[in-house]
Design a protein around this nucleic acid. Structure first.
Ligand code: FES
Ligand code: FES
Lengths: 132, 132
DNA sequence: AATATATCAGACTATATTGGTCGGATATTA
DNA sequence: TAATATCCGACCAATATAGTCTGATATATT
C-alpha cells in the first residue's frame, strides 16, 4: 500500500533524462527505453499520457520524439500523478460512493483528514523539485 | 496507487469504536463486524495484528475480545501502518534491491526525497489524532 | 511516390497484490 | 465438559498493475 506505480516512475525517469539535455533537444522513446532498460511499449504509453497532459511536446515522424513543454517547477505532484494515474485518493469511497460500509462507517471523515494532509503535501511539491 | 488497504481501514474503524467506550470495556470481533458490516475473519486477523503489535490487549475465552492498550496519541501513523502492513515505502527498491533498473536508475534519490517527505508527514500524525 | 521511423491508440494477457474464506488449534469461562 | 472467544496459517477469489501485441497516423528521407 501507499505505493507509486511503474508508470509514474518511468515518467519521472524520462523527465529527468530530458531535463539534462538542451531544452530544444528531442528525445525518442527508444533512447530512454534502451538507456534505462525499460519496456518500450509501456514507456511509450507513459510519454503519450504526458503529451496528452501537456507536460511534453510530441514530434512525429523519423527523428521524432518528445521534449519538455512546461516549466516543471510550475507543476505540482498532484497534477502530475493525476495526469498519469487519474484521480488520487487514499480510498475509493471519495470517487464512487458505492462503498458498502458508507452507511455505518465511522472513519470517513477521519480518513479524509489523512487524505487532505497527503494532498496538501504533494501540492506543495513541484515536479521540478523532484527531478532536478 | 497511494491507496490504503482494507485491513488498515478496518483497524481504524475498530480503534475508533473502542475509543468511544469505557477504557476497560471489552469489545469482541463479532460486535464490530456486525455493527460495521465487515467480514469477521478479516477483521479478526487485523485485530490479531494489533494485539501482536501491542496496540490492543486480547482477552481469550467467552466474553473475551479486545481493549485498547496504549495511548493512541503516542503512536504515529508510520508505526501503525507498519504493524499492520509491514515495511512502508513508495517503491520496493528500498527493501529488496534486486530492482533491475537499479544500475542505470536516475531517480532513486529523487524518489527518496518524496519518500522522506511522506514518512515525515505520517510520523508527525498520531493515530489518536485521526481516530478521535 | 515509396519507404522507414516515430508517435498514437486500444485491446489483450500475465503477474502481483489485496480481499476474503476455511479448518483447526488454544485459551478461558460457565 | 461444553460453549465461545482469540489465534494461526493455508487457501481461493477479485482486483489492480505491468507488460505485450496489432494496427493506425504523421512526417522526414530517399
Ligand atoms: S469505508 Fe467507504 S465510507 Fe468508510
Ligand atoms: S527504480 Fe529501482 S532503483 Fe530506480
Amino acid at each position: 500500500m501507499l505505493k507509486i506505480t511503474r508508470k509514474v516512475e518511468y515518467a519521472l525517469i524520462a523527465l529527468r533524462h530530458m531535463q539534462n539535455k538542451d531544452s530544444q533537444a528531442i528525445t525518442s522513446t527508444k533512447e530512454i527505453a534502451v538507456m534505462y532498460d525499460i519496456p518500450l511499449e509501456l514507456l511509450a504509453k507513459t510519454l503519450q499520457l504526458m503529451a496528452r497532459g501537456g507536460i511534453v511536446d510530441a514530434v512525429h515522424g523519423p527523428n521524432g520524439g518528445y521534449k519538455i513543454k512546461v516549466n516543471l517547477e510550475n507543476i505540482n505532484m498532484i497534477e502530475f500523478f493525476e495526469k498519469i494515474e487519474g484521480p488520487l485518493g487514499l480510498m475509493d469511497c471519495y470517487f464512487d460512493s458505492d462503498c458498502t460500509l458508507i452507511s455505518a462507517c465511522n472513519i470517513r471523515s477521519p480518513i479524509q483528514k489523512i487524505n487532505d494532509n497527503m494532498r496538501n503535501m504533494f501540492e506543495n511539491m513541484s515536479v521540478g523539485e523532484i527531478t532536478q
